[in-house]
Design a protein around this nucleic acid. Structure first.
Length: 831
RNA sequence: GCCGAAGUGGUGGAAUGGCAUACACGUCGGUCUCAAAAACCGAUGGGCUCACGCCCGUAAGGGUUCAACUCCCUUCUUCGGCACCA
């Protein structure tokens, strides 16, 4: 037979799969379903190694599950809206939709070259009006339910992308896309009330038992629930109160001043007419101008000014000064704090700087300064209450509870929960996105576009330049519309939706990708959802995964879905992804592959040289899926050599096989084979390998699954194989190297495709050994080995071992204190 | 600061509390060849030893156990997330 020719083989089988619609999925009553999904790509036109890794992992699983008898759905689509299309279109003097569709075409070609088992009948592109029409539909539903709303607020603004950003899109103070420092602007924008779902989004994380711990932790962090007390400080000279939030109510007697955020609404009132008014206003103006990044950086000194006003500490009626400082943020809590310099490091530094009083109210039982003069830093630990009125002597943790209750009874405080999560800003001043389907009428206000008029199509000829100002605003025919209610001339909304809106429900669309009555067919969704296995990068731990959970819960509230009887991980029936895996990045020389580093390995060049099967094999073998993977040219070479070796083995065995009937397979207990020692050995190795590979794939340990197959090949190389053994080898290889396996499957004379071959099952009888090697330890150190029959009794084994010459020097007739026998494994003699 | 993950040969990485380093890469030696590549065979944690072997060894230190890479405590380092969060 000819040499292994990956080029011919891969094209041949890719055509076969496509022509025969091998991976088309339909609802079926007689098989359990399995929905496997990867995070769909942005169509940049080229796939990179990250895609290859992500999609290969899912593909192996999908093929494996299908061979195990599951009804597998494995769809693919494109997250096609977004800024890069606009930028590329400007650069290449084309239009975003032309450019995007071209990219989709190229990308599809590359995905096909990898041999992924997609059901292309379900392909979606979010930039098609068949898709984004439903974005608009969902938005209108949210508007009806009060979940979409417009408000003027201080927002994140990227001056390079000329658009607003959601909080989740600000990474370390920079734009998630271009890393430009984010500015603050006051704008009226569209928001989604994700905060209405904060409790559910937090609590339901507990159901996600098969999600990585760190993703759960990151979401918890982001939602940021913190429990404490709101305390009301009455103003000295007016009846108004300042509400402050604290998680350390036990330190309230140590509060020696109050600090307001510069933006706090009471500031203007309390400084009015004061001597320092001008100076204070100047300070505020300066702070507000500074970006959040500046204000939150570590080394900036905490600045502040005294307002001239006083507040009353409600627990002891003390008159304490009110300050304004840059380290208090309007966005968190109430925008005001009580300062306890003795027990909070920031307050401590501020108090030292401005010579403000301190008071110790919690004393450490171990070591504690007796006076504030001795203190070099705040004491933030546990201890006993002092200087705290009726609470003196209590442990501070106990006092915390008692004080909160007492303050609530006295109406001077309220037990309160604060959250970090903010509503989701979704309007973008960009062209290439879903138009927000509302109309502004002078008389009727904000009016929804009627459902029957959807989609609001994106005009093809907008004069976009990428330089800001919504491009849609410049298209007269788009903007100038009649009010759907009163027919008066009105103006259409010109902002588009953030692209994360598109990806928050695409997994539901895949269930019925061509459905035309609503976003998805509820019956099909009921069958396929939730996604059984979702795989993607960690960068979406908060963004996409949080938004998708929010949307799914919203759909449940609309009565469109409920998976509570599906036996997935979510008891509440509204968690979209049962099992999540975040794959590690692909590195080159320890660094992320990137254009600027110039260290990109193009998958296409590897496919050309070695073939997709080699690439798939290497990328799974080189590291477990969750960890980072270091690209290794020699490693890929190794994977290629392995396939060539298997190919050659087949060649050498071909003559033997031809004696056997095509398609005939030995039954597992074949008598002829069992008599033959080598045959029995091979059967044992084979069944052991089936067990290992099956379990390893189920646990995402592809690297060890492949290692097991390599060991199997080594055994075959040494001892030969019959048709049955070799066939099982290529069946087990097929999820990893599908084209290669299809070809050998055919050469062996099998009909049809290996993708429909049932996954082999191991026979436990072959795993039983009649003799085993026992490790003999003396005081925990290996001193000997012994080949014994598994049926041997412990007493017999003991005398056998004690007679072992190798052990004599170690035992030296010393009394045996303990004799530990772990059956079939090990003996430890303690002397 | 808080939360999370991790630390094993020259390298990628294996090890339900029971033989540390499977599988692979690399390196070294050999076969084949005029030669090279490919392929094949063998060696490959460190130290001591002619050798049979022995000692040490999973970031460091301690603990539990007959037995610890694995469990517990302390420390160090790296990576990731959140953070003037009150």
């Amino acid at each position: 037979m000819a040499e292994y020719n990956h080029k011919e083989i891969e094209i041949k089988w890719q055509r076969y799969w496509e022509k025969n619609k091998i991976f088309k999925a339909d609802v079926s009553a007689d098989k359990p379903k399995f929905y496997s999904l990867e995070m769909f790509p942005y169509p940049s036109g080229k796939i990179h190694m990250g895609h290859v890794r992500n999609y290969t992992i899912v593909d192996v699983l999908a093929r494996f599950k299908s061979m195990q008898g599951f009804n597998v759905m494995h769809p693919m689509g494109f997250d096609a809206f977004g800024q890069p299309a606009e930028n590329a279109a400007i650069k290449n003097k084309t239009k975003p939709d032309v450019w995007t569709h071209k990219c989709i075409h190229w990308m599809k070609e590359e995905l096909k070259k990898m041999g992924f088992s997609y059901d292309w009948n379900r392909e979606i592109s979010t930039c098609d009006s068949d898709y984004y029409k439903w974005n608009q539909w969902i938005f209108l539903k949210m508007l009806e339910k009060g979940l979409a709303y417009r408000k003027a607020s201080n927002v994140n603004w990227c001056s390079s992308c000329y658009t607003t950003l959601a909080n989740e899109e600000v990474i370390e103070g920079g734009c998630w896309r271009c890393h430009t420092q984010v500015e603050q602007k006051d704008l009226e924008q569209w928001y989604l009330k994700i905060t209405d779902y904060k409790e559910r989004l937090l609590e339901d994380l507990e159901q996600l038992k098969e999600w990585p711990q760190r993703v759960i932790a990151m979401q918890q962090n982001w939602i940021g629930k913190s429990q404490g007390v709101d305390i009301y400080f009455r103003l000295d000279e007016s009846s108004k109160t300042i509400s402050v939030f604290t998680t350390r109510v036990d330190t309230i007697f140590g509060a020696t001043y109050v600090v307001l955020a510069p933006e706090h609404p009471l500031v203007k009132e309390i400084i009015k007419g004061r001597l320092q008014e001008k100076e204070i206003l100047k300070f505020i103006a300066k702070v507000v101008k500074e970006s959040k990044v500046m204000r939150s950086s570590d080394d900036v000194k905490k600045e502040g000014v005294f307002t001239g006003s006083y507040a009353i500490n409600p627990v002891n009626n003390e008159k304490i000064p009110i300050w304004i400082a840059d380290y208090v943020l309007m966005e968190y809590g109430t925008g005001a704090i009580m300062a306890v310099p003795a027990h909070d490091q920031r307050d401590f530094l501020f108090a030292k700087e401005h010579k403000l009083p301190m008071r110790i109210v919690i004393q450490s039982t171990v070591h504690s300064p007796q006076s504030t003069d001795e203190m070099t830093e705040a004491y933030e630990g546990e201890g006993v209450q002092v200087n705290s009125g009726q609470f003196n002597g209590l442990a501070n943790q106990q006092a915390k509870i008692k004080m909160a209750q007492w303050m609530q009874e006295q109406s001077i405080g309220k037990i309160q929960t604060h959250w970090r999560l903010r509503d989701w800003l979704i309007s973008r001043q960009r062209y290439w996105g879903t138009p927000i389907p509302v109309i502004y009428c002078k008389k009727c206000g904000i009016v929804s576009v009627p459902y029957k008029d959807l989609p609001v199509e994106l005009p093809k000829d907008a004069p976009f330049t990428g330089e800001g100002g919504s491009p849609l605003g410049k298209v007269k025919e788009f903007v100038e519309v009649k009010c759907p209610i009163c027919h008066a001339p009105s103006r259409r909304e010109t902002d588009t939706m953030a692209t994360f809106f598109d990806s928050s429900w695409y997994f539901l669309r895949f269930c019925s990708a061509n459905y035309s009555q609503s976003p998805f067919d509820t019956i099909e969704a009921k069958y396929w959802m939730p996604v059984d296995q979702y795989i993607g990068g960690i960068e979406h731990a908060i963004l996409h995964l949080l938004y998708s959970r929010f949307f799914t819960k919203f759909f449940k509230d609309l009565g469109m879905i409920d998976f509570s009887d599906k036996g997935g991980s979510a008891d509440t029936g509204d968690e979209p992804f049962t099992r999540l895996l975040t794959q590690g990045m692909v590195l080159k020389d320890g660094e992320v592959m990137s254009k600027s580093r110039g260290n990109i390995i193009d998958p296409d060049s590897i496919i050309t040289k070695y073939g997709a099967d080699t690439l798939r094999l290497f990328i799974l073998f080189a590291a477990p899926p969750e960890t980072e993977l270091e690209w290794d040219d020699r490693g890929i070479e190794g994977a290629y050599k392995f396939l060539n070796r298997v190919w050659r083995i087949h060649d050498n065995l071909c003559a033997d096989f031809s004696k056997e009937k095509a398609g005939s397979r030995h039954s597992v207990g074949d008598a002829r084979r069992e008599k033959d020692e080598v045959g029995l050995l091979l059967m044992k190795v084979m069944h052991k390998t089936i067990k290992r590979v099956t379990e390893d794939i189920e646990h995402f340990k592809f690297n060890t699954a492949i290692a097991a197959l390599m060991e199997f090949v080594n055994a075959i190389y040494r001892h030969g194989a019959d048709r049955n053994v070799f066939t099982n080898l290529i069946i087990m290889l097929s999820p990893f190297t599908p084209h290669f396996s299809e070809e050998l499957w055919e050469v062996l004379g099998n009909k049809g495709t290996i993708t429909k071959a049932p996954w082999p099952k191991y026979n436990p009888e072959f795993l039983l050994e009649s003799r085993v090697t026992i490790v003999v330890q003396v005081n925990g150190k290996v001193r000997s080995r012994m080949d014994i029959s598994v049926e041997i009794a412990e007493v017999e084994l003991r005398s056998l071992i004690l007679a072992d010459d190798k052990l004599k020097p170690w035992l030296q007739d010393k009394p045996i204190r303990n004799f530990i026998y772990i059956p079939k494994k090990l003996v430890n003699i303690v002397i």
